[in-house]
Simulated scan of single mutants.
Amino acid sequence: MADKDIYENMEVMEAAPQPKGNPPKIPAPWRPRARGIVTAVLLLLSLALATSLLAVTLLYLRAQIKLQGVEEAVQKLQVSLQPDNASDASAKGSDSLQLLDEAQAGVRMLKAQLGNVSAARTAVQDGCSDMLTKLPRGWRFYGGNFYYFSQEKKSWDEAERLCVSQDSHLTSVSSQAEQEFLSNETQGKGRWIGLTNRGTEGSWRWVDGTEYRADASRGFWAPNVPNNYDCVHTEPSKRNLWNDNKCTRHFRWICKQAHGPAGL
Rank of each mutant, 00 (worst) to 15 (best):
K4H: 10
N9E: 15
M10F: 12
V12F: 00
M13V: 15
G21M: 05
N22T: 08
P23K: 09
P24G: 06
P27L: 07
P32F: 02
R33F: 11
A34Q: 12
G36T: 09
V38D: 08
L43N: 15
L44T: 11
L45E: 09
S46C: 09
L47W: 09
A48T: 09
S52R: 12
S52N: 08
L53G: 07
L54S: 15
V56W: 00
L58A: 12
Y60A: 09
L61T: 15
R62Q: 15
A63W: 00
I65R: 08
K66D: 15
Q68V: 13
E72K: 13
E72F: 03
Q78H: 12
Q78M: 12
V79Y: 02
Q82H: 11
N85R: 00
A86K: 13
D88G: 08
D88N: 13
D88P: 11
D88A: 09
A91F: 10
K92N: 10
S94A: 04
Q98W: 03
L100S: 05
A103Y: 05
Q104M: 14
M109T: 12
L110R: 14
K111Q: 15
A112H: 08
L114Y: 01
V117Q: 02
S118C: 00
A120N: 06
T122L: 06
A123C: 03
D126M: 10
G127K: 07
C128M: 11
C128K: 05
D130S: 13
M131T: 15
M131G: 13
L135R: 06
P136M: 01
W139T: 02
Y142T: 09
G144E: 01
N145I: 14
F146G: 08
S150E: 00
K153V: 15
K153I: 09
K154E: 11
K154H: 14
S155R: 02
E160P: 07
L162Q: 11
C163H: 03
V164M: 08
S165F: 03
Q166P: 03
D167A: 15
L170Q: 01
V173K: 00
V173Q: 02
S175N: 05
F181T: 11
F181N: 05
F181Q: 04
F181M: 06
S183R: 07
Q187F: 06
K189V: 12
G190T: 02
W192K: 02
W192R: 05
R198I: 11
G202P: 06
W204N: 08
R205D: 02
R205A: 06
R205W: 01
E211T: 14
Y212T: 10
R213Q: 15
A214K: 10
A214M: 05
A216K: 07
A216Y: 03
G219K: 07
F220A: 09
A222Y: 02
A222S: 14
A222I: 08
P223G: 11
N224E: 10
V225R: 07
P226W: 01
D230N: 12
C231H: 00
T234G: 01
P236K: 02
S237Y: 05
K238W: 07
K238G: 06
R239D: 14
R239N: 13
L241Y: 10
W242F: 14
N243F: 07
T248Y: 04
T248E: 13
H250M: 14
R252N: 11
R252I: 03
W253F: 13
W253Y: 15
C255K: 03
C255Y: 02
K256R: 14
A258C: 03
H259Q: 13
H259T: 09
L264W: 14
